[in-house]
Amino acid sequence: MLLIDCPHCGPRDETEFHYGGQAHVAYPADPHALSDREWAEFLFYRDNDRGLYAERWSHSLGCRKWFNAIRDTVTYDFTAIYPMGQARPDTAEAAPQASAIAEADPQPHPTAGFEGAVR
């Protein structure tokens, strides 16, 4: 159960939110100027980053506002939340939770289990 800091309502449980996938994918200004391949890219292809990922959320059971967030797709930690339309911030600096005590080793720890995904 993620805790998501809605910019309008404050921190709320994940179950109040709707996930919107990758952020910063604009609807093409003129879809008809695109090739089929380019249109397919818009329709079906999204980044799928392992690590920090700019994504969209909507507080659908609250204020119904959409916003952008940067979240680590491995640790699930949010490092930035910012309005729609704003450019992706530099998360290296924006990370509010880079506190002294680490969340967990970012690298698989030798003793932390052997459940690393297959490759």
Partner: peptide, 22 residues
Amino acid sequence: RRGPIVWRADIAAFVPKTPVRD
């Protein structure tokens, strides 16, 4: 929470290496 653990031979035990944040 995927908190890191280490093996401590002196007490023969896996213990938390550092706590999870907060």
